[in-house]
Each structure stands twice: as structure tokens, then as C-alpha cells.
């Protein structure tokens, strides 16, 4: 079956397997491998993308359900060579180690800021708790999100 959606501002269409998750579509057909497959059941957050601006676990959303929607992945966050402030803040605060969870963390953080839920460290900790980091860069992630919130 066919699905048409907007990915990182660009209209795209694909012939998909009806069993495919949005994550499969992004990774296997569009080559957008920034969204990671960490658990395949919505427990780790590594596949987080924005769907119509909302943080979404792309492993749990059927690709067909993304039809007509607008999806933002980590590859679409920077404007040209200019990093999104959160991407820069993750670098500045060393909020990553192995990097595997990082795309999901950053997109969850984008949503955290957009929702106005970065007013205290505890608020950020709570919001960001759906995104696991086994390297445990958690304090640095909180610092990065708070720094961007403070600059706004």
C-alpha cells in the first residue's frame, strides 16, 4: 500500500508493507537512520521523532498511520550547517556518550521546550524519563535542556 507524508519539510511517498512501523519506513525506505531501534516496544525512546510536533515513539506507530502528517527526525532539525540550539547544547554540556539514544533525547527535549516543561530541573527529569540512556548522561542532558530554556 502507499503512504504520503511530509518528512523534514519535504513531501514523500512510499510503497509500504502494511505491517511496517513508522520507524521501519524512516530507516529502511527513507534512509533516515538517526531514529534508532532500541527495543521495538516503546520502552526506550531511542526511536523518538516528532509527528505534527508531538514526540512520538516511531516503533509503535504504524507507517500507514503517518499518512498526511508531518514528521521531523533528527536529520531535519538543523538549518543547513546551523545546529538547533539543543544540538549545540548537547555538545556544550557533554550530554551524550555513545550517542545511540541521542537523536531521541534531542527530539524529546525539543518537545519538552515546546510544551513549556523545562522550568525546573525536576520538570526536565520527569519529561525526559521516557528516553533511556545506558551511558547515563542524564545530569548533562538536564543541564543542556535547562540551558536552552534559560536562553529563551
Amino acid at each position: 500500500m502507499e503512504v504520503r507524508l511530509t518528512v523534514n519539510g519535504r513531501e514523500r511517498g512510499a510503497e509500504i508493507d502494511p505491517r511496517a512501523a513508522l520507524l521501519d519506513l524512516l530507516r529502511d525506505q527513507f534512509g533516515l537512520t538517526g531514529a534508532k531501534r532500541g527495543c521495538e516496544r516503546g520502552e526506550c525512546g531511542a526511536c523518538t521523532v516528532l509527528v505534527d510536533g508531538r514526540p512520538t515513539l516511531s516503533c509503535l506507530m504504524l507507517a500507514v498511520a503517518s499518512g498526511g502528517r508531518s514528521v521531523t527526525t533528527i536529520e531535519g532539525l538543523a538549518e543547513g550547517d546551523r545546529l538547533h540550539p539543543l544540538q549545540q547544547a548537547f555538545i556544550d554540556h557533554d550530554a551524550l556518550q555513545c550517542g545511540f539514544c541521542t537523536p531521541g533525547q534531542i527530539l524529546a527535549a525539543v518537545a519538552c521546550l515546546a510544551a513549556g516543561r523545562a522550568n525546573t530541573d525536576d520538570e526536565v527529569r520527569e519529561w525526559m524519563s521516557g528516553n533511556l540512556c545506558r551511558c547515563a548522561a542524564y545530569p548533562q542532558i538536564v543541564a543542556a535542556v535547562r540551558a536552552v530554556a534559560a536562553a529563551r
Binding site: L32, T33, G34, A35, T73, I74, E75, L77, A78, L83, Q87, Q88, F90, I91, D92, D94, L96, G99, T102, P103, I106
Partner: peptide
Amino acid sequence: PRQDAAVKVTG
């Protein structure tokens, strides 16, 4: 800062 930070934050 990490030399690999940029590639990791951009996917």
C-alpha cells in the same frame, strides 16, 4: 568537547 559530538547530535 567530543570530536564525535557533532555527528552524534545530527544523526
